[in-house]
């Protein structure tokens, strides 16, 4: 089942990237996807059974909503910081706790923190995230987590665990 999921995902990406409706293209795509699946399919979906639980997709959609709003906000705040003459920045490093265990969830959390307003993942360890904050408001880990992640961590916990 693992292999089937990987194959379908790769085949869909192939079709979208080439977007060519000739039979030869579909055939080539199938062959290429089969080779890639045979090489890497062993590793990728860590929990194949999660693919068929619709609750996770709803949670992920909620995550995407929060994330898109945060990302747009981040761009405008950053644009303001760049064009304002006084350069209103006060950079520093904070460490916040990381409670997610699943590797994919951790990657997505780190990436969305990088795209969230004013924060930036520098390093990731077993149970902490090292974050560069362009305008430090607090150094306390719990408060910093509240400011930086908000609800993201708990939503991702629903999606991936």
């Amino acid at each position: 089942m693992k292999y089937t999921i990987v194959f379908i995902v790769i085949y869909l990406i192939w079709i979208m990237l080439t977007w060519n409706m000739e039979p030869a293209n579909f055939f080539t795509g199938a062959v290429v996807s089969l080779i890639i699946t045979a090489l890497f399919g062993r590793e990728f979906p860590y929990h194949p059974e999660h693919t068929f639980q619709p609750g996770r997709y709803f949670a992920f959609a909620r995550f995407l909503g929060v994330f898109v709003v945060q990302m747009a906000k981040a761009n405008f705040i950053m644009a303001y910081r760049i064009i304002s003459p006084g350069l209103p920045i006060n950079p520093g490093i904070v460490v916040i706790p990381l409670r997610l265990k699943s590797p994919l969830g951790r990657i997505i959390l780190a990436n969305s923190i990088t795209l969230a307003p004013g924060t930036f993942t520098m390093d990731i360890t077993e149970d902490t995230l090292v974050i560069h904050w362009i305008y430090v408001e607090t150094l306390d880990p719990a408060k910093a987590e509240e400011c930086i992640c908000g609800r993201l961590q708990s939503i991702l916990k629903e999606v991936f665990e």
């Binding site: 990302m71 981040a74 761009n75 950053m78 644009a79 760049i82 920045i89 950079p91 990088t114 795209l115 004013g118 930036f120 520098m122 560069h132 362009i134």
Partner: peptide, 12 residues
């Protein structure tokens, strides 16, 4: 680090 912040945020 601040340069990377500017580069990632605005460019996305």
């Amino acid at each position: 680090y601040c340069r990377l912040q500017a580069a990632t945020k605005c460019v996305t």
